[in-house]
Design a protein around this nucleic acid. Structure first.
Lengths: 358, 358
DNA sequence: TTGTAGGCGTTATCAC
DNA sequence: GTGATAACGCCTACAA
């Protein structure tokens, strides 16, 4: 009953108690070697007596060169990173490929000046999640660690496996639909342009200074069709931000009011729709609204959103597979996933110039 | 230019190249010892030349006995765990207290039979998040590891620091409000009763078999006021599940229809409200709906929900503080946080027995 | 201010 | 089947 101390028992202690060598005890726990049944039993018994949970993970990691941990580096705060339904779907995919393989996910909210030390976090590989243009900065220290790096929707970087989405192409595709319907005055509601998440009108300067890759790419795609489209950058991908953006864009003289809004996420689109409805602007008759993502709106809006559906879960799976491949010594291929236009009921031809349906 | 190999450089290699001993090089990186400026410079130069990122985290952890990682053990899949706004708020609080202190959060979705090995995950402490009654099981191996354990809203367990919410008391408080208003036919819409998340009518058997602590506590509180209240358990804390539950409860002969619904989360409440509205049942005139959590509904419903506001962020903070205290050698106190009734506009006196406002 | 020695707890390798 | 030995890469007394 009276155990020596409350200090963690070691494998050596268990071995001693069982009257075997440490190596043999090790074999019992790792299962990678032949051990006589009687010996095994004795070791396990000794372990039970000492309340020994198993080999120390840190020591094991040092010896084996593997921690069983995959880092997920995000630029947002913990909460914010997971408040985006797209990231949640991605996590589902990652879980499928990694957690189910026994890997743990180490979430590292990293921003310049953050107290999280990417050089010191124990991990076998890292996935760069909502990381923006100065990716290079954060990546540098990770590169030095010689661990596999996977970046999701990020600018290309040598040595980093990219898991990409056809953001620009998809946005262009959506914009084309609007043009074909006859729209000319189109406004953008973009995702945050940088880590500051400043809400405000799009200006050439702000766009030039933008560091958010996904937002920039989607802007680029929309501009390929509507080169002069103005708009607003939101402070986050939320209904509330979309609502604010919608108000800013729609509370203007009728002649200036856009006939269509290209929102960079479904939540933003839902906010725009709400703003429109409150102003008595009918969707889609007076205003077309295009979303992005294809998430389940689950009653956030009753409209069937016309949107670009991205394979978010698959994005996570692809990232997970890439990590596993890299860890297995292979060189994972770059992946580019494609989004698909889903026609809902929020896009239509623009209202006739004179007629006001109000 | 031609570095010896592509294998990770070690502190020893850097030291050798700088012409100093390993211990001196160590001092340079840990900063906890006097080093001559010239020496330091030479070491850093050598490090740069070898593209050395810093001491190996695993080796450092072994030596120091600290990994800088806090485990967060969840019973749900990764995505599901973070799909709950309450958990997100909690994460915000946790981030404040832990990530900002440089700790990383290792997310471990653990369920019986899961491939995640709680005995092998490198961590200095663990926070048990949505973990249910057979907590004891998962905790056993963690106890053996002699690391501090903090459980959020879980049954008490020796050696585990509890961070609790007054779930039963708050639910009772809300139920009392309804009774004071004159309600007698009250139905419950509960959170999932177990990891299966089976949706279905509440029965004594199902309740007895329930493993979800929070759900059980909130049921208990409501029953203290309405001992006979029946209801439905949802398959998750979502608007969709609330909607389904609402339909099940409200599509019955008028005489049997509850005059009030106690939902165990705001999302569920929002779903119930939607179902009611679709059935032409006015809230709160024909039906009172009480929520729980006090999250921002951000346009999910336009009603100002009457709900029990819980300090979710503070829950996370408290957990984070408890972990830090334990790691510092202190014995953290148990914490019980209290929820507060916020009167919105979804609760009113029941409709007069005969009168049908339809 | 710097170097030496020893060990953190495991596991791989090779004898026996 | 089992045991000795030697790392894994680092840090911390302590000595110089």
């Amino acid at each position: 009953m009276s155990d020596t101390a409350n200090t963690r028992p070691t494998l050596a202690a268990v071995a001693a108690r069982a009257g075997v060598s440490a190596s043999t005890a090790s074999l019992v726990f790792s299962g990678r070697g032949p051990v006589a049944d009687a010996t095994r039993a004795r070791v396990l018994e000794a372990a039970a007596e000492l309340d020994f949970a198993g080999p120390d993970p840190t020591a094991r990691s040092l010896r084996r060169g593997r921690t069983g941990v995959i880092g997920v580096v995000t630029e947002d705060s913990l909460g914010d990173a997971f408040r985006d339904p797209i990231n949640l779907a991605l996590l589902d995919g990652l879980g499928d490929e990694l957690a189910d393989e026994g890997y743990g996910l180490l979430v590292l909210p990293w921003a310049p000046g953050s107290s999280v030390d990417l050089a010191a976090a124990p991990m076998d590989a890292a996935i760069l999640l909502g990381c923006s243009a100065d990716l290079a900065h954060s990546v540098e220290v990770l590169q030095q660690r010689r661990i596999p790096l996977v970046a999701i929707e990020a600018p290309e970087l040598p040595g980093v496996v990219p898991i990409d989405l056809d953001n620009a192409e998809a946005a262009r595709h959506g914009a084309e639909l609007l043009r074909e319907l006859g729209h000319e005055r189109v406004a953008l509601v973009t995702l945050p342009l940088d880590v500051d998440r400043t809400r405000g009108a799009l200006t050439p300067e702000r766009e030039a200074a933008a560091t958010a890759f996904t937002a920039s790419e989607r802007i680029r795609g929309a501009r390929a069709v509507f080169p002069d489209a103005g708009g607003v950058s939101a402070g986050g991908s939320t209904v509330g931000e979309g609502y604010a953006a919608g108000q800013a864009l729609l509370q203007v003289p009728d002649a200036e009011r856009p006939t269509a809004v290209i929102a960079q996420s479904d939540l933003l689109a839902a906010g725009v729709i709400r703003a429109a409805e409150e102003l008595g602007i009918a969707v889609p008759d007076d205003l077309s609204v295009l979303g992005f993502d294809g998430i389940r709106l689950d009653g956030i809006t009753s409209h069937a959103l016309t949107t670009l559906v991205q394979p978010a879960v698959e994005k996570g799976r692809a990232a997970g597979r890439a990590v596993r491949a890299a860890l297995a010594g292979d060189t994972p291929d770059a992946v580019t996933l494609t989004s698909e236009l889903r026609r809902g009921a929020t896009v239509a031809a623009p209202p006739p110039p004179g007629g006001q349906s109000l």
